[in-house]
Design a protein around this nucleic acid. Structure first.
Lengths: 297, 297
DNA sequence: CGGGATACATAAGGGAGTTTCATGCATCAT
DNA sequence: ATGATGCATGAAACTCCCTTATGTATCCCG
């Protein structure tokens, strides 16, 4: 539908002139000279084939044709301006976070509320993805990636490592008189004894890799559920330490040993360089970085 | 109301892309290259602060923001296009003729109907003016001017001179056995004996300037009324010869003598050079010139 | 599983359309 | 009259936009 449109720069000038009834004032609004406006109107009049303004001594008046054209154009521009403003506002007001499923459920879901409280003007949408995303083909503004960094064109901030360690509720720990040695863990129920991370950690702690063999093969499926179970005192869970800093600080969980296993990756906050200074990007960065700061380096 | 508008060239490209779902096809519609469209979309995305399209393998898709922006823009452009088309059409379809009162009543009013029959798509508006008009400050497309020609910036076509001569109906002429000498006129009633043109003509005809003195000072006010009276056989009228060619050819009037007076001016059809090729201008020119052609040179 | 075709991105370069500047002209107000 | 206001115009400069050429990724086909 190759609808024939007038030259848009000229029609824009026309609209302003019609509204102001003056080339000079229209030029003021448009940020150009009276001369340029005069030129554009002339172009438009040549294109339409008839004058759009009658030049009277110290003022101009719309011709019949101009009088019919002006309101339609003004209205159309108002709609465009409104939609544009809304788009700009929407762009500033909605933060799309792309994140790995694990990070979303294990950490982000529990904490994003505080970001929204801190920035009530920014709506948040969380997209979860299995693989590393490409900003060119996703709507995300920022993403949480796991890996080792070094993505071209992206700004990256290291958030946390993937160190994991057993955690449990202080009450459960106290129930066995405290945990001094890793071997003391074996006296307690284990939330997900068949978690593939356990052998790794057990070995690092000087225990047998199969020390948990034979226990019921229960699995709660995600860290956050395991964490909840641990907090409820149901057993020991092997959790990514960085994800539960706040719970440890709040006394809901304890990490009895410094011994950690690791997946050998790190989590990063990344976003396109082009958007590094967008307010919503800054807001998110400035909110999330302190939460992982320091002890995770 | 300096409403913030997006870059219009870019928004135009965006609209086409959104409609086609393809940079390449949009470029086709817009008559530019895919490359240019890509550039414009990039500009717009930078301006709005967020991507408007998601780049998927062999196709693109609107983002949330783009999806909300596109319909509003499309609709606005449709309105502009419609108004523009209407303006163009109106410009082509209405011919504004500015003319001197005398020409309008003495000739144009009686003949314009045939123009309208020949060009049913063109509406005609006749503006009458006392003075010579300036196209810059009137809405006229063409004008009939009296003068001696030589107006800058205007195309001019000589129509007729202002020669005038006595005219009467053939029956009235026959009633006195035909007119052989100018003096024979004095036997007949004169429609407007005190018309200022009479003394001029009488002298040229070798009669006394005041040969009509003492006749009742009736005046019908305009040539066309005088002509009607003459056609009705009520007397002799002094008429601009060129205005009544058709009536003479039709046998309604006779001009008994070749002796003519003149106002020393000519009538011209004029119009701005810029509009010389507008269809309606050509139509009017091609209609009116043959009507005065030849014997008026 | 190559090879071609399709679609968008990007860099460099040039050109047409706009804009500005300077000036002129007409009108209006004082 | 005289200055101020407002639009038109011509020349020159600039800016933006478009084109050309090329790259990259994906899809499709045999």
């Amino acid at each position: 539908m190759a609808t024939q449109l007038p030259p848009l720069a000229a029609i824009r000038a026309f609209e302003a002139v019609a509204r102001h009834g003056s080339f000079t004032r229209a030029a003021g609004e448009l940020g150009m000279t009276q001369s340029a406006v005069s030129y554009q109107i002339k172009v438009l009049e040549e294109r339409v084939g008839t004058p759009l303004f009658v030049r009277r001594p110290r003022r101009i008046a719309l011709t019949e044709i101009g009088r019919r054209l002006a309101p339609a154009v003004s209205e159309a521009f108002e709609h465009i301006a409104a939609a544009w403003q809304e788009a700009r506002h929407g762009a500033q007001g909605t933060l799309v976070i792309n994140t790995l499923q694990t990070f979303a459920t294990a950490w982000l879901a529990r904490h994003v509320g505080s970001f929204q409280l801190a920035h009530p003007g920014i709506a948040v949408r969380i997209e979860t993805e299995q693989k590393v995303i490409d900003f060119a083909r996703n709507e995300a503004d920022v993403a949480i990636r796991a890996g080792s960094g070094g993505w071209p064109g992206l700004v990256e901030h290291q958030l946390i490592g993937t160190d994991f360690s057993p955690m449990l509720s202080p009450r459960l720990a106290a129930s066995v008189g405290g945990l001094r040695e890793p071997v003391d863990l074996l006296k307690l129920p284990i939330v997900s004894p068949n978690d593939p991370w356990w052998p790794d950690w057990l070995v690092r702690a000087g225990l047998a890799a199969d020390a948990l063999a034979g226990r019921p093969r229960t699995s709660l499926g995600s860290q956050s559920v395991e964490a909840s179970a641990a907090i409820a005192g149901q057993g020991v869970a092997l959790l990514t330490t960085a994800f539960y800093r706040q719970e440890i600080e709040a006394g809901l969980l304890v990490q009895p040993f410094d011994i950690v296993g690791t997946e050998g990756q790190r989590y990063f906050l990344v976003y396109p360089e082009a958007r590094r200074n967008a307010p919503k990007t800054r807001a998110f960065r400035d909110w999330i970085l302190p939460l992982f700061d320091q002890k995770t380096a």
